[in-house]
């Protein structure tokens, strides 16, 4: 279970990166990065998972006293939330940039934006 999730996550990362580094269209790159980010998030969550346990919320199903043996690791869950939000922020920013770049040159081909070099 954990391994499946993790392998999936890694494959998503690699796929995403492949897409981001081979597609020359900026929007496609952004999408590809989103894919990769998703992969990262899956990996994050997968790491904290413990077989046969439940979510780290103390309610009727998980009494406080038994929490330590009943719940999965809450930390990755907390981290993934932050990671998602940050990923979202960066993606938004990239989109805004993409818009602006298009406005400047009328193209979304990343190779066209290479006046700065050497």
């Amino acid at each position: 279970m954990v391994y499946v999730a993790m392998v999936t996550g890694f494959i998503l990362i690699l796929m995403g990166l492949y897409g981001a580094l081979t597609n020359s269209n900026i929007l496609r790159m952004i999408v590809a990065f989103s894919v990769a980010n998703t992969g990262v998030n899956i990996v994050l969550v997968a790491v904290g998972y413990i077989d046969g346990r439940t979510a780290p919320i103390l309610d009727a199903a998980v009494p406080v006293a038994e929490a330590a043996v009943r719940i999965i690791d809450p930390v990755p869950q907390a981290l993934v939330l932050t990671a998602i939000v940050i990923g979202l922020g960066v993606t938004t920013l990239m989109l805004a940039y993409a818009y602006k770049l298009y406005e400047i040159k009328g193209t979304l081909d990343i190779a066209q934006f290479s006046e700065l070099k050497w």
């Binding site: 990362i13 990166l17 981001a20 900026i26 790159m29 990065f33 990769a36 980010n37 990262v40 990996v43 994050l44 790491v47 930390v75 990755p76 981290l79 990671a83 940050i86 990923g87 960066v90 920013l93 990239m94 940039y97 993409a98 602006k100 770049l101 400047i104 990343i110 934006f113 290479s114 006046e115 700065l116």
Partner: peptide
């Protein structure tokens, strides 16, 4: 105007960086 391109390049890099960093952090954890 060229700075927009520069900023976007930076964002590309930072995406890759954050992927590496997150994977690293979680396994280190």
């Amino acid at each position: 105007k060229r700075t927009f391109a520069a900023g976007f390049k930076y964002l590309i890099i930072s995406q890759i960086v954050s992927i590496l960093l997150l994977v690293g952090i979680i396994f280190a954890y």
